[in-house]
Amino acid sequence: MTQFGFGAVTLEHENTGRPDSDTVDATLAASGDASAFERLYRHHVPRIYSLVRRMVNDDDADEITQDVFVRAWQKLGTFRGEAAFGTWLHRLAVNVILARRETLGTRRKRFLEGDAVLEFLPARKAGPELAMDFESAMERLPDGAREIFVLHDVEGYRHEEIAEMLGLATGTSKSQLHRARLALRRHLER
């Protein structure tokens, strides 16, 4: 007869006090349960896909999103439930994206100096047929400025974390972000 035991490890959801379903599914998936991993995929794919699409481009977004989840499957054994699964997956996704961008090649000069970022993105034109929406404008930023803008303003990473991830000085992260914002302000929906 099974008796209820006493566990030392806490896997409780911070709000409900119960183990959250992601953590349970991650544990099952790490044991080889593909259906549990599919549940995790269904739950998290919108956020991961959106991150990939904004960091890279539409053409490669599907393939890189798949790479992220395949990598997550391979690395599930390192997930220990200390952070939310979504946080763990998101950081893994950023690493996959950053590694992948190197193999994609640099289509544009990555970090443009000074006001070159502003010149890269054409000013918003008058008239609906020439107008570019905010998200399209963001996608047209130079790669480096776009990555920093997405990581900082969209995804909430700090400059110090971004500098470490991208291998650059914190000051560069700050100045590129400022340039990206200045460029994008001209494409705000009025």
Partner: peptide, 11 residues
């Protein structure tokens, strides 16, 4: 991890 999750629920 599985054992920990089970133990936690049992607790």
């Amino acid at each position: 991890n599985y054992a920990a999750a089970v133990e936690d629920l049992e607790r």
